[in-house]
Amino acid sequence: MSDIAAKTPPMPGALALFWRSFAENRGAVVGLAIMGILIAVSILADVISLHSPIEQFRESFLIPPIWQEGGEWSFPLGTDDVGRDMLSRLIYGARLSLIIGFSVASLALLTGTTLGLTAAFAGGIVDIVIMRLMDVLLVFPSLLLAIVIVAILGPGLFNAMLAVVVVTLPGYTRLARASALAELARDYVTATRSAGAGTLRLMFDVVLPNCAAPLIVQVSLGFAVAILDAAALGFLGLGAQPPTPEWGTMLSGALQFYQRAWWVLALPGFAILFTVLAFNLVGDGLRDALDPKLKR
């Protein structure tokens, strides 16, 4: 028997195993690559962009991209209706979108997880109140709820982000509660509890790490939702206000030029699509790699 055992390769590290499983999904690797490029672009925005995203070049309205007739090398992707450089706006828009995604997803994760764990641990009336509240939030179409919240708080990027946090909150809360309840039923939790661990310790040190996998996936997908919803609010004029180089806001101003300047209309949308796609692909890859039950 021993010679058989010796032939099996040594157990690879957990991280290597995770990567192998993740990399099996080609789409996820592509998503990760796009994500890497986006992060690099956002960090280097000040270095690589040719102009300020809000500087208006009075004599260069609606210059087409360079490959089209009339394009200029100083504006590789053309300019918009008030003479701002599209490329620079897109680059700074990437930075803004990542900041939006990160802030919204982390705030929603933090609040949602706390609420979900509280509901799971407290049980009884606290559980009922929290979960009913989430149900109420869920029956509003998320964009409508976001619109209503912005209507109350007033338009603007910060308020739009807050609205998206509220809208995405139920997902995190429900997930955290469900995972925590599933973990609480396990024997090791009972063992830790009988060993005298306090509730808070049990919550954050014992149960939370064990239900981290679905939450990590949710965060990646939550990034995508946050960017998409914030852009939609921007498009409706309720999110970031001009001249902020937010992709959705850029589209809202571009509506009237669709006959003359397709690039003003097409480019910000491609930017949104690829960014959201990248996070969705990575989220799917993470789910496959972290949750063996869902894998085939």
Binding site: L228, W262, L265, A266, G269, N280
Partner: peptide, 18 residues
């Protein structure tokens, strides 16, 4: 499918019109 699910439909609509 994953592309469709990532679609900003306000832009998608504009592109269709375009």
């Amino acid at each position: 499918s994953v592309t469709g699910a990532s679609m900003p439909i306000f832009w998608w609509g504009l592109m269709m019109i375009l």
